[in-house]
Amino acid sequence: MDHRKDIAPEIPRLRRYARALYSGDVAAADDLVQDAVERALSRLHLFRSGSSMRAWLLTITRNVYVNQMRSLSRRPQVRELDQEQDAALSTQATQNDGLVVRDLSRALSLLPEDQREVVLLVGLEDLSYKETADVLGVAVGTVMSRLSRGRTQLRRLMEGAPVPRKDHTHLRSVK
């Protein structure tokens, strides 16, 4: 059975997820989607009929991302510096839409990766806790605790809490 045609309808959602992972960097996000789709095509024979194409593609996208981040773990933190400056200009703003949005993007980028990916998969991609656990290869309880910590931390950052040092060491590829 040809599942190839089932990929295209999911591309916009993969792009949304990738865009959030890369804090709005369009080029980096689309590079990620491109790589993920190529990998998905090369592994299409591994896709189980009847399972969720969306979750499968998100799993691949996430794993490609983890590999990219791991190999680039010493990359310059340029985006975050930019966002620091943005944040300095908009710390007191909480009601104006544009500034709130800008703050959220920054706050998200400052979450530990393991919390951020759960916040995005559940909060943006609307995966169930079970689906999220499958994508990440962890237990549902782990998803819930990371979600809880992630959302709490996000709220703190949005309320102007001091910025913690971002830690990439929690990244684990599951496949």
């Binding site: 839409d97 949005v101 959220l104 916040v119 909060g123 959302r151 996000l154």
Partner: peptide
């Protein structure tokens, strides 16, 4: 925050 996350990235769709 969850609603704002959608507001931020849903336009990509």
């Amino acid at each position: 925050d969850k609603v704002a996350l959608h507001d931020l990235y849903d336009p990509v769709l």
